[in-house]
Design a protein around this nucleic acid. Structure first.
Lengths: 343, 343
DNA sequence: GTGAAAGCGCTAACAG
DNA sequence: CTGTTAGCGCTTTCAC
């Protein structure tokens, strides 16, 4: 049997209430008693029993992170979450799902009573069903990379990202800008499309559905494989784009593969812009829109913790801006080329 | 207040003991009562309070996964862990560290009394200090991607992997085979080196320390950045290799970058073999040794659960074999070339 | 300041 | 088959 506060109390000739007080550095305890208790606790190697604490306190020290796919994006976000959580006494429960249905069952588990104090719900659209579950739960929830009126959220401005990406393609001389989308059900993906449409419209270019291809499979479609399939499909159509905006870097890698197989050169035949700026791919030469993934994770966790500790409060909706990173899969901007020729 | 077994008991006019029995589908309960209780529980939306259960049962439903770095390797392993765990009532606590010191503090948290029933300790060398902690803890531990006599473990045969990789390089005509290592403190990395040495020795080639470069930084060195730095260092030395075995794919990407910057072609100037076969990199053309990462995670979890449920039992040491995947960063084997010329 | 005592929600003998 | 009764280890009034 492990050492409990009873053991400490006995050794220190005080009651368990006192031990509990000093351990929680709560109200007035004689300095002498405090020292003695602390010493004995240390000596005995005392460690509080989390379940007992949670039961008595009627709360939990667990934060559940629910996410719909396991990609590099998530890896970065999780790093941010972990770093912030490490500074607290919370621990992180991870629920990895592979599709919408799995998200539901994982969420159910995460929301089980007494399980988690807070939930970080990532990237998945907050459907009515999920919203219901989230609201009925006693857990504090923060959304990241997805949005819903009724919950605190932290997102990257995907519309802006789509806009900037598409605009970059237009500025570098692309006339037929295509779009390779992940699942249209995915919120970030749908938002990026809106930015794409807006950029084209602003430039006076008509949106051509024939240049838009999306992943119709069950998953979320942010994978290399999805990008490959979707690009192949696009290339099988009569009109060929001279530039494509792809809704994630991983997909973009698949797009590049499809192009290679079709004997197409980048950026000469088709320029490519991704989204995310995954560290591992930074040297693949992919032009992309950088998302502050780590910061997103860390910030969302920060907010969650604050809500947990100070009894909720207002729900904010924070928006991070993505940043265009130009590398080798797009041409230089026309203006830049002109400037260079000046020299 | 949430609904408890007392509420159910009252509504069903039975005792809480009976409710508890049917909820745990334990011994003989009248079918009629069982039905009624189940119905009411469902109707009330009852959910057991995990902390209360854990306290009463004197056990935990948590499995802690402790890992020293956040790379794609881990992502795959975690998928395996999650998939297996999803079939049980366990939940997964993730402790991500960035270096050895962080591993220690994360491990301490994971081992806190009553926290986790089992610990999956990944990739990190089991130092004496860790071994001590692990043994003193009441948690069941399983090692994955690392080894220690006293604990169950599941590893990939890294010596074999290093051997096969090096041998492949030799067979495809490399005369000066270099080695780009992650931290020599890392067990997998050190084992891969042993395989490298053995392959050279078996081929009658002297091991030249000047062709071996490792990452001396604080981290584990399995990153792109590390590979880049380490390769640059190697290239700055007088003797230049015509092939290198790199201890991970992520590092290999960095090696490729370093080569590009030095104007070196792959595989013409230098052949490259990585390790891992990270999905995202499968189309980067990297020749590598595939580790069954997902399987490793799933299997280790399987073992952990088995031990948890059937009161320990023997500790096995399972070894998975890595598989050589030849792509474009190495030349074709001489035999293959010969065979081709035959045609 | 400190102790006694009543739970937190659930499990598990032990009777019956 | 079912109820009674102790706890599990800790927190938290409420007195003293």
């Amino acid at each position: 049997m492990d050492v409990t506060i009873y053991d400490i109390a006995e050794r220190a000739s005080v009651s368990i209430a006192t031990v509990s007080r000093v351990l929680n550095n709560s109200t007035r305890v004689a300095e002498a008693t405090r020292q003695r208790v602390l010493e004995i606790a240390d000596e005995l190697g005392y460690e509080p029993h989390t379940s007992a604490q949670n039961l008595a306190r009627r709360q939990s020290n667990l934060i559940a992170v629910v996410l719909p796919w396991a990609t590099n994006f998530f890896l970065e976000v999780l790093r941010g979450v972990q770093d912030r959580v490490a500074e607290t006494s919370y621990d992180v429960l991870v629920y990895l799902a592979r599709n919408n249905k799995e998200v539901e069952s994982r969420l159910d588990r995460a929301l089980k009573k007494g399980r988690a104090a807070g939930v970080l719900f990532l990237s998945n659209p907050v459907t009515d069903a999920f919203c219901e579950k989230l609201k009925n739960s006693s857990a504090t929830v923060v959304l990241a990379d997805t949005y819903h009126d009724e919950f605190e959220s932290a997102v990257v401005d995907n519309v802006l990202g789509g806009y900037v990406a598409t605009n970059h393609l237009i500025e570098t001389g692309c006339r037929s800008v295509g779009l390779i989308m992940a699942s249209p059900r995915s919120v970030p993906s749908a938002d990026r499309r809106r930015g794409y449409v807006k950029a084209l419209t602003d430039a006076g270019i008509a949106v051509d559905e024939d240049l838009i291809s999306f992943d119709a499979e069950a998953g979320d479609g942010y994978t290399e494989d999805s990008g490959y399939r979707t690009m192949c499909e696009l290339l099988s159509r009569p009109r060929r784009p001279d530039g494509v905006f792809v809704t994630s870097d991983e997909q973009a890698i698949g797009v590049l593969r499809a192009m290679r197989e079709h004997g197409l050169a980048v950026p000469d035949d088709i320029s490519v812009v991704g989204f995310d700026d995954i560290p591992l791919l930074r040297y693949a030469g992919l032009s992309t829109l950088r998302q502050p993934m780590y910061e997103l994770g860390r910030f969302a966790t920060e907010r969650l913790i604050k809500k947990l500790e100070s009894g909720d409060g207002e729900s904010q909706h924070t928006v991070f801006a993505p940043e265009l990173i130009v590398r080798e899969t797009t041409r230089q901007a026309v203006a830049a080329v002109a400037a260079e020729e000046e020299e």
